[in-house]
């Protein structure tokens, strides 16, 4: 059964799109990531034009992260103060990211820059998470406590002025690194066209030492706010948000996110981090493979974007 997409202007198999929403929604609910870094390439692979794919994934991510966030909220695993501080930096970062993107387009190397930074970022992050979680799992196996929290050995950036207490996360740190992380997420999100949850979750866990579950819940709040804003911006600036495509993705995505969130909450924290590390590393290898190996066809045809 196929359905015609009014903005993308092509028919797609409805159940394929639904299944994609379900699968990515599951991952998104489980790890507290938006899933954009998985969904956008999948849509482009099924023939949806890249501009429409990027824009239509935003409402999908808003819906699935909102439903995931509510699920974490009810369990008291969302730190609204932390989310607010991150968001204030995030908005500035998005603005800077849009300007950097324009600059890269002027130079004409945006595609290569995105791919290389994507690989570097995901590769480093995935490896770090993998190593750390394997170590934590080994420690638990030997009978020692999994998390060793030593308040005295805090990094220098947490002792900066403007200290704030984030009760839900059980941390007492300077607001400066929190805003800086928000800024970095906004910047990376705007340049790479992703929600940034897969960077935010490890940043909250490893840099700010927030508990894994709270990091996931807080990241989901940040994702739904930024993605709802992105939906409006894309619709107004480019007119590339396909409501039919987004709706099919959303129905699958919200269902998947519920099951994912439940699975995530029942998993051991270090196992959750191991799985996320593997996933992030897998995507990095996939992206790297695209420009390291010889392509099947050395020619590609692109369409000039329709201007409004």
């Amino acid at each position: 059964m196929t359905i015609y997409l009014p903005i993308a202007e092509l028919p797609v198999a409805i159940f394929t799109i639904f299944a994609m929403g379900l699968a990515v929604g599951f991952i998104s609910g489980m790890f507290g990531v938006g899933g954009g870094f998985l969904m956008t390439p999948l849509l482009i692979f099924t023939g949806v034009p890249p501009a429409v794919a990027v824009a239509s994934v935003s409402p999908y991510m808003a819906a699935s992260s909102f439903s995931g966030a509510l699920s974490y909220w009810r369990k008291g695993m969302v730190d609204m103060h932390l989310a607010g501080a991150l968001l204030s930096g995030g908005l500035l970062g998005t603005l800077a990211g849009v300007m950097l993107f324009l600059f890269l387009r002027v130079i004409g190397q945006v595609d290569l820059f995105i791919r290389i930074s994507y690989t570097a970022l995901l590769g480093t992050l995935g490896t770090l998470m993998l190593v750390e979680s394997v170590r934590a799992i080994r420690r638990t196996a030997k009978g020692r406590p999994a998390v060793v929290r030593r308040p005295g050995t805090r990094a220098w950036f947490m002792r900066l002025p403007l200290k704030m207490r984030f009760r839900r996360s059980r941390i007492y740190v300077s607001a400066l690194p929190v805003v800086a992380i928000g800024f970095a997420i906004g910047l990376v999100g705007a340049v790479l066209g992703v929600g940034g949850g897969f960077i935010l979750v490890p940043a909250l866990i490893y840099l700010l030492k927030a508990p894994t579950q709270t990091a996931v819940g807080t990241s989901l709040v940040l994702t739904f706010v930024t993605m709802a804003a992105a939906t409006v911006l894309h619709a107004q600036a480019n007119g590339t948000v396909d409501v039919v495509l987004a709706l099919v993705l959303m129905v699958g995505g919200t269902m998947g996110a519920q099951f994912g969130a439940r699975t995530g909450q029942s998993l051991r924290a270090e196992h959750l981090r191991l799985l996320l590390g593997l996933l992030v590393l897998g995507v990095a290898v996939r992206v790297a493979g695209e420009f390291v190996t010889r392509p099947a066809d050395t020619f590609v045809v692109t369409t000039m974007e329709k201007l409004r």
Partner: peptide
């Protein structure tokens, strides 16, 4: 679209 998607997420939850 943004409002609709948030509502859908809420209903699903």
């Amino acid at each position: 679209v943004a409002m609709g998607s948030l509502m859908l997420g809420g209903v699903a939850s």
